[in-house]
Computed example of a mutant assay.
Amino acid sequence: MADREWEWEDDERPRRRRRKGPLRRLWSLTKLALFLMPLGLFLYGSVFADCRNRPSFGDWSAMLGATACARSEMMGNAFSMQENFAMLKRLID
């Protein structure tokens, strides 16, 4: 009986995967790009942004750098919020 079951399983053809058409490939690449874009913008801002100089808004790279500087400033303010509240409490008391 075990031999018959083995033969029956052997007769099944493996399923072939459907080939992706050009529109499905384009949609997959679009989803991948939209998924990776925030990571790319974050890395661009953390590596190439020059926060010491005033940005010129003539080109896109300067605008991306300015947004990265603003983001890092906001994160710094959020992280130091507890210290600021402690200082306010000391000033009030």
Rank of each mutant, 00 (worst) to 15 (best):
M37V: 10
S28V: 07
N77G: 10
A78R: 05
E73C: 09
G76I: 07
L23Q: 04
R52A: 13
A86D: 12
A62P: 04
P38W: 01
P14F: 05
A49D: 00
L29M: 09
F79D: 07
P22C: 14
R13M: 12
C51F: 01
G21R: 11
M37P: 01
Q82D: 12
E9F: 11
M74W: 07
R90A: 12
K20I: 11
R15M: 14
R25V: 11
D93M: 15
P55L: 01
N53K: 15
T30R: 09
L88R: 06
R54I: 08
R4S: 08
G40C: 11
W60Y: 10
K31R: 15
R19Y: 06
E9C: 07
R25T: 14
T30M: 09
D10F: 10
R13K: 15
A70L: 13
P22K: 13
K31M: 10
W27C: 08
P14C: 01
K20H: 06
T67N: 09
R16C: 06
P22A: 13
G58M: 03
L43A: 08
M75D: 09
Q82F: 05
A66Q: 02
V47T: 07
E9P: 02
R90P: 00
D59P: 03
R25P: 04
R18I: 09
G45A: 00
F35K: 09
A86Y: 06
Y44P: 00
R17M: 09
R24W: 07
R17Y: 05
C51R: 01
L29Y: 03
M63P: 04
L41Q: 00
A66K: 02
L32W: 10
F57P: 03
C69L: 02
R15F: 11
N77K: 12
G76E: 03
R24I: 03
L29E: 05
R24A: 12
L41H: 01
D93I: 12
L32P: 03
P38C: 01
R19I: 06
S72W: 03
S56T: 12
W27T: 05
M37A: 14
E9T: 12
D50V: 04
F35D: 05
R71M: 07
S80F: 02
P55V: 00
K20R: 14
R71L: 13
E12R: 15
L43K: 04
E7Y: 07
S56Y: 05
C69I: 00
A70E: 08
